[in-house]
């Protein structure tokens, strides 16, 4: 039984903002299915009551003051931009 369908792969690619062709979707479905099927070995383990680890060190929230400081200039920020205009990043139309 497959763990992930081609339709689901296309859906996930859309969520991840990746354009994929039908042919790529076929290949990725097989590969992702292999990986997910393998990963289901985790179900052999009873993890009832086991705390999930999000971070290995015993760190709590690290707080700092919310203060403005000098970082980069507007010119710097735009230096590597693929497209810009009037001191702003330029992108294609957001509305259809």
């Amino acid at each position: 039984m497959s763990r992930i369908s081609k339709e689901e792969v296309k859906h996930v690619a859309n969520l991840a903002r990746l354009a994929i062709t039908d042919e790529e979707a076929t290949t990725f479905t097989k590969q992702l299915d292999d990986i997910i099927t393998y990963a289901e070995q985790l179900n052999e383990l009873d993890t009832t009551g086991v705390e999930p680890t999000t971070h290995v060190l015993d760190l709590k929230n690290v707080m700092r003051k919310d203060e403005p400081k000098k970082w980069i200039t507007q010119d710097d920020a735009l230096k590597n931009a693929p497209d810009k205009q009037d001191g702003q990043f330029k992108v294609p139309s957001v509305l259809e």
Binding site: R17, A81, P82, F89, P92, S93, V94
Partner: peptide, 16 residues
């Protein structure tokens, strides 16, 4: 948007 690759002739932001 800010750096790196940008596809040409995108129809919309999402397409880009």
């Amino acid at each position: 948007v800010r750096y790196g690759n940008r596809a040409e002739d995108a129809e919309s932001m999402l397409d880009m």
